[in-house]
Amino acid sequence: MSDPGVRSDVRRWLVTGATGFVGKAVVARLAFEDSCIPVAGCRRDVSLPGNAELAVTPSLGPDADWSGALQGVETVVHTAARVHVMDEDAADPLAEYRRANVEGTLALARQAAQAGVRRFVFVSSIKVNGEQTATGSAFSAADAPAPVDPYGVSKAEAEAGLFALGRETGMEIVVVRPPLVYGPGVGGNFARMMQWVARGVPLPLGAVDNRRSLVGLDNLVDLLVTCLEHPAAANRVFLAGDGEDLSTTDLLHRVAAAMGRRARLVPVPPVLLRAGARAVGRGEMARRLLDSLQVDISHTRETLGWEPPVSVDEGLRRAVVSLVG
C-alpha cells in the first residue's frame, strides 16, 4: 500500500549522505527544482532548503532497512560511504570499508530495485583506477580497475556488484568517479592547504612539475544531476573533472590569487621532499603532492554533451570565500 503522505504527481530522488560534503550540495541544487522533490537521507533530523524532504536513514551496512526512505523514489544518488581515512585505526581496514561501501551499498541497491527505483547513481572514486598516472597519460573510463588501497578496493567491488545487480533486476546503474573534490566547506588536506596559504606560511612546493586533475564541487554536482535523467548515462562509468590539470605549484599560486595574495613557495627539489617525507613517515602525503594523477573526461563530455560549468579559478574563489569570508 502506498504511503498517503507521499505525493504521486512529482518525481522523488533520494540522496544518501545528505549531510556530507557532496550529498548536501546535491540536495541544495535540487531543492528549488519544480520537477522533483529531493529526499535527503540523513541519520539525524536537520533543517533542509527549499522543497527538500527529510528521510531519517540507517547507518550504511548489510542489515540496514531503507524501506521508509525509498517510498515513492524514482532515482537514488548514493553519496554515503565510509570515506578515505588518513589515520586508520581499524584492525582490518579492508573489512570495515567492505562492510559499508560494498555490503551496505548493495543492500541499499537491492532494496531500491525491489521498491521500483529506476536508476541508481553511485558516487565512486578515481581510486578505482589507481593512485597515479605516468607523465603525459591519464585515466579513462575504459581502463581496467587497478585500486591500491582498501578504500579504492571497496569502491571497485561496489561498482562490480552494482552492475551485476543491474543486469539481474533491470535497474539502471550509473557510476561517477571523481578525483579530489574541492569547494565551499571542503575539509581535510585541501582545507589545511588553503589555511597555510592564507596565513602566509612558506611552503617547500615551488618546484613541483606534476599534473593533477581536480573537480570543483559545483561541477561534480552538475554532472550528478545530469546523470539523474540523461538517457545515455544508463549502465555506464563516467570520470569527473574540471577539464584543466594543475601542478601542485600552480594550484597553490591560484589558491593564493583567489585570496588576493601571493603564495610563499620555496623551490625545493621534489627528490629531497620525497626523502624527507619518507623519513618522517609521510610518504603517502608526499605522493599526493608530488605525483601526477590525470583524468580524461572526454568520454563524459562526448556521451552526455556535458561541460564543466565552473572554471577552476571560479571554483577556487568559491572555496576560498567559504574559508576566509
Rank of each mutant, 00 (worst) to 15 (best):
P38Y: 08
V174F: 04
S137K: 15
R274Q: 02
A191W: 01
V10L: 13
E314H: 13
V208K: 09
G206K: 09
T16R: 09
L223R: 02
G68C: 10
R98S: 05
V175P: 03
R236F: 02
H78I: 01
V22K: 07
V324L: 11
T75I: 10
R11V: 12
L205R: 02
S140C: 13
L228V: 07
L239N: 15
S154L: 09
Q195C: 11
A286W: 14
A198C: 11
D143A: 09
A28M: 03
S247H: 00
Q71P: 07
G20D: 04
V117W: 06
S59K: 12
V148E: 10
L217G: 10
N51K: 12
D149G: 04
T249P: 10
Y151A: 01
E314I: 03
A69Y: 10
D250G: 11
V85G: 14
E172N: 02
A113Y: 03
A31V: 05
E284S: 06
L106M: 12
I37L: 11
P150Q: 04
P145N: 08
S47L: 14
V153S: 05
T300W: 04
A112K: 11
L94V: 06
L217H: 12
V237C: 01
L214A: 00
T79Y: 09
L293T: 07
L162M: 00
P309F: 12
T75N: 15
G136V: 10
A91I: 11
A55S: 14
F163E: 11
D65L: 05
M259C: 04
R318L: 06
L94E: 14
T133Y: 13
E131G: 08
G166A: 05
V324K: 08
R177Y: 05
A64H: 02
V39R: 14
L293F: 04
R317K: 14
E157N: 00
S2G: 13
S311R: 01
L60I: 08
Q132G: 14
S125F: 01
S213L: 02
N189F: 04
R98F: 10
A319C: 03
D89N: 09
A240D: 06
V186S: 13
R167T: 05
V175I: 13
G61K: 11
R236P: 02
S67M: 08
Y151Q: 03
R99W: 12
L293I: 12
V201I: 06
L223D: 01
L290H: 14
Q195G: 11
L205Y: 01
R274S: 08
V83N: 02
G200C: 05
F122S: 02
L316K: 07
A25Y: 07
M194E: 06
A81V: 03
R167N: 06
L217T: 04
Y151W: 03
Y182C: 06
G72C: 02
K24C: 13
M194Q: 13
V175E: 08
G216E: 05
T248F: 08
G283N: 10
V117S: 07
V46Y: 11
I297G: 02
V148L: 14
V255Y: 06
A69N: 11
E157K: 07
I37Q: 04
R7Y: 00
P267T: 03
G243I: 09
R278L: 13
D45G: 06
P4S: 12
F32A: 14
L224T: 07
D250K: 09
R29E: 15
E307L: 12
N129K: 01
R301H: 08
H230W: 04
R7V: 15
D34Y: 04
E172A: 14
V148Q: 09
A138C: 08
T135M: 14
E159N: 10
T19V: 13
R11N: 03
